[in-house]
């Protein structure tokens, strides 16, 4: 996921736009295909998972985690009705009846709301644990480095120091280059 977004970031805006159009084409084609072979199920899914579609549109999180979370729980609320629909003879009428039933919609949308609730509460709790774990990891790594220094002396950090120095030099050089570029830019 990260690699993909990285690749996306690497593309120019024109390329990104072109690729978005391509995805939309594929989605529309798939929808048309499913509309032909399972139109009733598709209607139920689209209506039942409207909160998920909305979440997907408004989700700005990396990896669309909010959409996944809402969608997963929303699907739990939709899935029993899909099963029920598949057991009916006249699927289209049944689907229309289901989407017209307020109770059915309440179940489906409550599931989505629970999904939202999970997404809004759990990550902060988990992140607290993650921070504690990371701090422990850093402490452990620092301890290992201290042991290495005790055994091998300060020179053991020579590579790291050198890398830092190189990075600093590079930073300084680029900074100077930037300054030159700024200075060289014609001013009107």
């Amino acid at each position: 996921m990260t690699d993909q977004s990285q690749r996306m970031q690497d593309l120019t805006p024109d390329q990104q736009r072109q690729r978005g159009r391509s995805y939309l084409t594929w989605v529309l084609l798939l929808l048309a295909f499913f509309a032909v072979i399972a139109g009733a199920t598709l209607i139920l899914i689209i209506i039942g998972m409207l909160p998920t579609i909305v979440a997907f549109i408004i989700d700005r999180s990396k990896g669309k985690t909010a959409s996944i979370c809402v969608g997963s729980i929303n699907f739990i609320g939709v899935f029993p009705y899909i099963l029920s629909l598949w057991s009916q003879f006249d699927q289209l009428d049944s689907a229309m009846a289901m989407v017209g039933d307020i109770f059915t919609l309440l179940v489906m949308y409550s599931a989505a709301a629970f999904g939202w609730l999970l997404f809004l509460t759990l990550p902060s709790i988990i992140s607290s644990f993650v921070i504690v774990l990371q701090q422990r990891k850093v402490a452990q790594l620092r301890g290992e480095q201290k042991d290495l220094i005790e055994e091998w002396g300060e020179d053991v950090a020579a590579i790291v120091e050198m890398q830092k120095l190189e990075a600093q030099e590079q930073h300084m050089e680029h900074g100077m280059e930037g300054m030159h570029e700024v200075d060289l830019e014609p001013r009107f």
């Binding site: 990896g63 996944i68 979370c69 997963s72 739990i76 999970l118 759990l122 990550p123 992140s127 993650v130």
Partner: peptide
């Protein structure tokens, strides 16, 4: 850490969804 939490939550929701559909 928050991103990690979000990811974990999404995974948990997915797993929960799969379990629920199986049970249903």
């Amino acid at each position: 850490a928050l991103q990690s939490g979000e990811k974990a939550t999404a995974i948990m929701a997915l797993v929960l969804s799969m379990l629920a559909t199986t049970v249903i």
